[in-house]
């Protein structure tokens, strides 16, 4: 279980990205995080794996206090949490297989990894991960020769290498052609349902939330304004989250 308590983040320039956010995520949930751009979704997800240092508040994972971890302990927590990014964040000039293997670095000895030596087990695991996202035949091409959708699937394969218990997905489909959104989210759904991974995923489109999420939270100007089931977001809730001007749009 992941428990966030009174999480607050104020950036050095004074921007308050998160204000006293508290919520819980049960193991095996698919939690959607919604809200306008700049509402604090990315900051929230990055506080969970400490890519961003929260200003105050606590995050517990089972009984471990993530926010109190230091040095090597942070890295040991991180390697159990997979992350998927809006811009895929692949090393474009490296091969697909190298990108996938780099997901294993948290478990690998520094010296051997400098020489690009990975165990047979890790290499097999990388090929298996690629097979799961349907890209085994692309293992040795350069990452920048793939399409956007394929690159995001490599991103998922990289996260799988960590054998994560939690997956943080920061707008995983926002840079993709809308028709590709389902193909990516279906992989996340699969990992959630069949392998029991907890997924925290920020999303823009409400119909995607309805379709994939088991629960949702909403942020507005850094504050938690909604927590509940996806279908509970009615018109009043919608206006509260997105503002009076907003109109519902749907994805094909």
């Amino acid at each position: 279980m992941l428990k966030v308590e009174n999480l607050t983040k104020i950036y050095p320039n004074g921007t308050q990205a998160l204000h006293n956010v508290s919520f819980e995520v049960q193991d095996g949930e698919f939690l959607a995080v919604i809200g306008l751009s700049g509402s604090g979704k990315s900051t929230l997800l990055r506080c969970i794996n400490r890519l961003i240092e929260p200003t105050s508040g606590k995050i517990y994972w089972d009984d471990v206090n993530i926010t109190a971890a230091k040095g090597d302990d942070i890295r040991k927590i991180r390697r159990q949490i997979g992350m998927i990014f809006q811009q895929f964040n692949l090393v474009k000039r490296s091969s697909v297989i190298t990108n996938v293997l780099s997901g294993r670095l948290g478990y690998t000895n520094t010296f051997t990894s400098m020489l690009h030596i990975f165990s047979k087990e890790d290499r097999d695991r990388a090929l298996a991960s690629l097979e799961q996202v349907g890209l085994s035949e692309k293992a040795h091409v350069r990452a920048d020769s793939l399409s956007g959708g394929q690159q995001q699937r490599v991103g998922i394969a990289r996260a799988l290498m960590q054998e994560p218990k939690i997956i943080l997905a920061d707008e995983p489909v926002a840079s993709l052609d809308p028709v590709l959104a389902h193909s990516i989210l279906k992989y996340l759904e699969l990992l959630n349902k069949e392998r029991g991974m907890t997924v925290l995923c920020s999303l823009h489109y409400l119909d995607l939330v309805h379709r994939y999420a088991t629960r949702a939270i909403a942020l507005k100007d850094g504050e938690l304004v909604f927590e509940g089931l996806p279908h509970e977001i009615d018109d009043a809730q919608f206006k509260a989250i997105y503002g009076q001007e907003a109109e519902r749009v749907s994805l094909v």
């Binding site: 890295r75 780099s102 670095l105 991103g155």
Partner: peptide
């Protein structure tokens, strides 16, 4: 900076992040 962030998120240390990212 994207790949560097992604590698940090996997739990890689600084030297590994430089080498791969």
């Amino acid at each position: 900076p994207g790949p560097v962030e992604a590698l940090t998120a996997t739990g890689a240390n600084l030297i590994q992040t430089i080498r791969f990212g």
